[in-house]
Each structure stands twice: as structure tokens, then as C-alpha cells.
Design a protein around this nucleic acid. Sequence first.
RNA 1: GGCGACGUAGCCAAGUGGUAAGGCGGAGCUCUGCAAAAGCUCUAUUCCCCAGUUCGAAUCUGGGCGUCGCCUCCA
Length: 486
Amino acid sequence: MSLRLYNTRTRSVEQFVPLRDDGVRVYVCGLTPSAEAHLGHARSFMFFDVLRRYLVHLGYRVTFVQNVTDVDDRSIEASRTLAKPWYEVIEHFFGSFKRSMDRLGVLEPDREPRATAYVPQIVELIAALIATGHAYAVGDGVYFDVKSFPRYGKLSGRNVAELRVGARIAPGEEKRDPLDFALWKFAKPGEPAWASPWGEGRPGWHIECSAMSHSLLGEPFDIHGGGEDLIFPHHENEIAQSESVFPAPMANFWMHGGLLQFDGKKMSKSLGNFEPLSTLLDRHDPQAIRLLFLRTGYRKPMNFTEDAIDSATSGLRKLYAAYDLLRSAPPREADGATVTPFRERFFGALDDDMNTSAALAALFDVAGAAPQLAGEGGGPQAAALLHEALELLGISPHRRARLPAGDPLAAAGPALLARLREAFAEVAEADGDVRAAIDAAIAIRNRARRNKDFALADRVRNLLADGGITLADSKEGTTWTAASGG
RNA sequence: GGCGACGUAGCCAAGUGGUAAGGCGGAGCUCUGCAAAAGCUCUAUUCCCCAGUUCGAAUCUGGGCGUCGCCUCCA
């Protein structure tokens, strides 16, 4: 079995064969950091992260490029309303995005080119488009002439004549055809501007991807990815630009992720119906969010609810518990064959157009069989499989989340400390912080338990519970956890 | 209006011709002073509806109904 992927270009699942022997080249359309990123972005980038990890696992040398469109109309708008330079707006949102990606365990792209760093290449590409009759300069900028590219609409299945029916030319735009799109926009006073042969201005959306993928990967490269909403017009326009000038098709595989919905509607900047990813990650385990997304096929639309994250969190705990059990099981007669069926199911599912849902089901079956596997001496093999598989999915048991950022005791801590001091002389005397007080209370309770004074033991448990502290007894002793959010 | 996707248990979800994966939740039991964790067992005669093709359909065809996406900035 080998990897098969759905290709938007051909609308079918195809065998994935790298174009060159020396590696696989992937270009994913990244963020335009003109606003906070949301969970929908996370879903998309996380999927391509898993795809990338799997390609590496298959032995390919992968070059993974994800661009940053660091200049656009929206960030210029934001700079006016926030009274900050446009580049500070960009840096703010991009920094926030990068931190979120890091928390989600999304690996750094090999290259993360910024549009503004590729202006010379962009200008060069536009010049070539003009020279070959595919673009023209007018009063407000340079436009791509859609009529000059007969294949326009092929990727998205659009009919140019039908598109033209509803299309309008906005006031101030001097393009000749409503379908034509901007390659270069001349700067109005106060707007960011770069020099070009046609006048000072900035790149239009779309052209940066053609210029940067050409510079970094060439044509054709293996996989071009992005969200489903990029198929039209973004990717259609990229194809028109690139393929008008470069002799080869732009990319071999075009892959698109399904959109995340909130409340039955797509999350989007214009609807504003989302919570910033950064604050959502303060409340939930990033690995649970990964698990949640991987449970649904990447091409399917998916509705987001916080309950779903909670359910994924439970599932994650189950996988980790099984991993811990298997790992500590005594190795006996090495018999790798016992985990082979699970292994084949897991990798077979990924080969089948990245069916992470079915792959995960195989891992949950390993978890279900963990006690048996451990008993039969298959623990180490099964643990190794789980580790390898979970690492591939980016939910490694070795990087499981500790408590979310921020001290969960910060809010409720002082009140709890006061209460403990009031209730127990021993705690009052110990001059410590909340944590020390909790430890002291636990000591009191454990002494009470040994003395069979369960009324006192329960009083301690309840007192701590009121402060958001949950106790758990085990053979190794008593541990506590603080409810997040205090 | 045009194009496209989807509709599977209480919730989420895989499965695209051979007789319904998996997760969450729920129920019972074991263990535990209590609790948690963990373990065991159970939880869709049926896949939005109606017709058709077939020995056989959740899967194919036709027709409904419903939801969503793209057609404008979007992952």
C-alpha cells in the first residue's frame, strides 16, 4: 500500500508519486495576519502539519513552504483604526499566530516567506505577465487579463461567462473586465508602498504565492494546499498567473481542507464569529484540539463546540493511560506479530487519503486491547507503535500538556490558603504558600485516613474541593489537581 | 440563480456493492474507607424520505426534503 491523496485538480483520489527523486515540495497558503487567527486556521495548518509528518515518515525529504501575506487591505485598515503602523499590526497578529501554532505542536515550516520580502520577484513576475500580454497597467494598478488565459476556472469548475454575469467593477477600479484581478495596487497617500516600474504600490493578493512558490520550489511542485475557501478565486488566480508565464503546470496535487464552522456557520474574519485561537488555547489542551480535528476527515466540514473539545480531552486521556500501561508492562518473549494488525490498520488508513479518523480508531483499539497486550508480553511493541503513531499525529505522549499557561491557583489560591489556615492550626503555623498549605492539608487527611477518622478526611477533601482542588489517592500517594480557571 | 459538498446511535464520526469501525456520553459490575483513575460488560435488525437497479444497497441510479460552502476578503 502506498499513499493516495485526493486531488482537487482532477476531483479524484490519486496515487501520490513525487515528481522528483530528491524530495517532495509542498506549498501551503499561510495566514494573512491582519486579525487574530481562529480555530479554523488551526484546523487547516494542523492537517497539513500531519500530512508533512507522514510524508517524512514515508521517507521523503520534504521541503515545506508556508507563506505569510504580510501586506493587504485589511491590515492597512486595521492600522488606521488602531492608529498603529501597518507592520506593527502584522507583527502583533503574526506573533500571536506563531505562538498558537507552537502550542498546537505544528512544526515550523522549512521556509516561511513573507510577501514583502519578495517584492523584486513579484515585480519581475508582473513584468513578465505584461510582456507576454497577460497583464496591463491602468490608473489604479496592474491587472491580470483573465481573457488571456483560456483555462481560467478549470480548478474550481467555474464558467467564465457565468462568473461575469454577477461580477461588477468596484468604484475606483479601472480594470477592463470585472473578472480581472489586481497584481499591483498603486498606493494612496499614507499607504505602504514599494517601487515598481509602473508606480509605487503593493502586491495584490495572489501574486505573492506565484512569485514565492516559483522562487523557492519551481514548477511543478508536488502539493499545493490550503483551505477549501481558497479554491476560488485565490488558487485559480495563482494558476492563471504562474501558468501564463512558466512553462510547466504550477502544482501536481491541489489539496484543500474542509472549513470549520461555528454555530453552523463558517468561521470567518468578516463574520467575526469566533474566539481568537490564542485565548481558546488558554482554556483547552492543545493536544485535545488536535485529536478533535483528526477525528473528522480533513475534507469534511466540521462544526465546532466546546463540548467536542471536552470529549476529545477524555479520549486523549484514554490513549495516554493505555500508553503508560503498555510502556510499563514487563517485556517478555518479543512477539511483534501481535501488534502487526493494528499497525497495518493505522498506516493503511493514512495511506487512504489521510483517513485520520480510521487511523485513530486503530489506536483506540490498541488502547482497548492494552491490558491483554500487556499481559501477553506485547506491551513494549504496542507502546512503541502508539508512540510512533501518536508522534506522527502530533499528540505525542511525551509532550502532553501540563496545566495551561498561567497559575490555576492564582485566582482562588489566596482564599483557599486563608480557609485552610482557619481550619487547621497545623497549616496556620506552617508559613508557606498555597501549595505548601495544600500539602499540609493532604498530610492531615492521610493521617486521619490511617486513623480511620474518615469524617476528618472527608472534611479536608471537601474543603479543598471548594477551592477547586481535586484529590486522587493511589498506591504511590495522594496527588492533587487544580481546576483551570480557578 | 450557477457550481460543489454533506445528511450514519443521545452527541461526534469511519465506512462508497457483501451484511454497521472508533470516540464521547449513559447504564450495570469489579477495585477503592469515600472519591478519582483503571478494568469488565452492555448501549444502531439499521444508515434523512420515496421509488428503482441488484442474489445482495448506508454504499449505485432517479426524485424529494434539509444543512453547509464557493460565486466578495477568507484556512
